[in-house]
Simulated scan of single mutants.
Amino acid sequence: MPFAVGVIETQTFPAVLAAADAMVKAGRVTLVKYDRSESGRQFVAIRGPVSEVRQAMEAGLAAGNNMPNYGTVTSHYVVPNPPENLEAVLPIYFTEESEEFWIDEIRALIQP
């Protein structure tokens, strides 16, 4: 099963919180990373099956952009089937902290 990574960057924390909340509720995805990026912006990354990540990203974009006076989405991107090199260098990998939230399909592929 092909997996994807989706990333949303927003201007403010309330907007990234709304996007993250909407994404994990809209699809079978795992939140794998949250951090600050340039100029105080915030970003959140999710992993899961390609179709689920695309569905979750749509919900996250709508929620992040629906924050009057609290910021908007500044950028977003979906990478279907990221190569191992990308996972090794960028903060998009599954971690022990996110393990309890892995969806069953991911758990079956990652754990022997």
Rank of each mutant, 00 (worst) to 15 (best):
A19Y: 00
I103N: 15
S51L: 07
G60S: 06
V78Q: 14
Q42C: 06
M67G: 02
T30F: 01
N81C: 15
R28A: 13
Y77E: 05
V50R: 03
E38W: 12
N65T: 05
E100Q: 14
Y77Q: 11
Q42K: 08
D35T: 10
F13S: 08
T30M: 07
E84C: 04
G27V: 09
P82G: 07
S37T: 15
R36Q: 04
N66V: 13
K33N: 14
G27Q: 04
P80W: 15
M57N: 00
A19D: 07
T95N: 09
E87L: 15
E38H: 11
S75D: 04
I46G: 03
E38T: 08
P49G: 04
V44A: 12
T72G: 14
V16I: 10
Y93Q: 15
G48L: 05
Y93N: 15
G48A: 05
I106T: 13
F94E: 11
Y77G: 00
G60A: 09
E105I: 02
A56S: 06
P83T: 11
T72Y: 00
V79I: 12
Q11R: 08
A15N: 03
I110W: 13
E97F: 03
E100A: 12
E97A: 10
A4E: 09
E9V: 03
R41G: 01
S39M: 13
A19H: 00
Q11G: 14
L31S: 02
A63P: 03
F94K: 13
E58M: 01
P112Q: 11
F3W: 03
G40R: 05
R54C: 01
N81D: 13
V53C: 02
M23D: 05
I103E: 14
A4I: 05
S98H: 13
V16T: 12
A20S: 12
R47A: 06
A19I: 00
I8E: 11
A62G: 05
Q55H: 04
R54N: 13
P91Y: 08
A4M: 08
W102I: 09
L61V: 02
Q11C: 06
A15F: 01
F3Q: 13
P82R: 05
K25N: 14
V79G: 03
A62L: 09
A63R: 01
S39G: 12
G27F: 00
T95G: 11
A4N: 07
P82Y: 12
E87A: 10
T30D: 07
T10Y: 00
T30A: 02
I8M: 06
I103L: 15
G6W: 06
P83Q: 08
A45V: 11
P2H: 06
Q11P: 05
E52R: 05
A88Y: 00
W102E: 13
N81A: 13
Q111D: 05
D104C: 04
E97P: 04
Y70F: 14
A88S: 09
T30S: 07
V16M: 11
V50Y: 08
I110V: 14
